[in-house]
Computed example of a mutant assay.
Amino acid sequence: MQSDIFAKRKKDSLIFFSLLIVVTVGSVVITQYDVSKGFTSLLKAFIWGGSNFYPDGKSLTILPDVLRKLWDTILMSIAATTVATVFATLLALVGSRTTRMNRVFSLVARGIASLFRNIPLVAWAMVLMLAFSQSSITGYLALFLGSFGFLSRAFIETIDEVSNDSVEALSATGASYSHIIFQSVLPSSLPQMISWILFMIDTNIRDATLVGLLTGTGIGFSFDLYYKSFNFHAASLVVILIVITVILIEMVSNTIRRVIM
């Protein structure tokens, strides 16, 4: 019996990798991608980066301005995530099967969460630019809406995983809906929800760079400005600071996760 299971898994894996190879080869043929040229270009890119894309003494003079823009980007990312958390929590309580008050409202809430979750952040930024042009509010709203969609869906699934035993026990004692939420559902879901919030902050700091390229704000705009003016030394300084910031934020997030989980 165990040998049959092993053989079936081996067969399924072989089929999967065969299909993957066929799709890869087909994509290369259809797009007429030159694989050898791609690898040689990659090598040239690394050589050019090592020769031109590094901070020099002159680029360090802009460090205070870059750090200020980076700080603004971090604050915007945190603000967008925290405000989105409030709205996502409310929508998740309505949409979750554990806490829903009405089946129709639950379906609508899940539909809203799925809709917002599946619209790319870049699409939000481009649509919002039509209404607010290139401004800080455009970047903030793009991050907020993207965070709202992701967190709503994540919170719904997290609350759905909460055991119904405690909910049923409180309901049997005549506890009100608010007591069930604040004494059972949220305390049980909070560690995982905090983990999702930290992940979203980490992700938003990365995405804020791309949003800044489109909306002309924050650290992304600084990189775009220096890069398009061929000031590659300053642009490389921006990239290095972004990488360092993301690594530090991730280290802090992982530490908090280990404490709360």
Results as ranks from 00 to 15, higher is better:
A142P: 02
A142N: 08
A142D: 10
L143N: 09
L143C: 09
L145Q: 07
L145T: 02
G146F: 14
S147I: 00
S147W: 00
F148K: 08
F148Q: 06
F148G: 05
G149E: 00
G149S: 00
F150K: 10
F150I: 15
F150H: 11
F150S: 09
L151E: 07
S152D: 07
R153C: 05
F155D: 10
F155Q: 07
I156P: 02
E157N: 13
T158R: 06
T158A: 13
T158S: 13
I159R: 08
D160W: 01
D160H: 00
D160V: 11
E161A: 15
E161Q: 15
V162W: 11
S163G: 06
S163F: 03
N164Y: 14
N164G: 07
D165H: 12
S166C: 03
V167N: 02
E168W: 10
A169E: 10
A169C: 05
A169K: 03
L170G: 02
L170D: 01
S171R: 12
T173C: 05
G174F: 04
A175R: 01
A175S: 03
Y177K: 13
H179Q: 14
H179P: 00
I180Y: 07
I181E: 11
F182R: 11
F182S: 14
F182W: 14
F182P: 01
Q183D: 12
Q183S: 15
S184R: 06
S184C: 10
S184W: 08
S184I: 05
V185L: 08
P187W: 14
P187M: 03
P187Y: 03
S189R: 02
S189L: 06
L190K: 10
P191I: 13
Q192F: 11
M193T: 11
M193W: 09
I194Q: 07
I194L: 14
S195N: 13
W196G: 04
I197Q: 04
L198Y: 01
I201Y: 02
D202K: 06
D202H: 06
N204G: 05
I205S: 08
I205D: 07
R206W: 00
D207G: 06
D207V: 11
A208W: 02
A208K: 04
V211T: 00
V211N: 07
G212A: 02
L213E: 09
T215V: 15
G216F: 04
G216V: 05
T217V: 15
T217M: 09
T217E: 12
G218K: 00
I219N: 01
G220T: 05
F221A: 15
F221D: 14
S222P: 00
S222F: 12
F223D: 03
D224T: 11
L225Q: 11
Y227F: 15
K228Q: 14
K228I: 06
S229K: 11
F230W: 13
F232R: 06
F232Y: 15
A234G: 07
A235D: 06
L237Y: 12
V238H: 09
V238P: 02
V238Y: 10
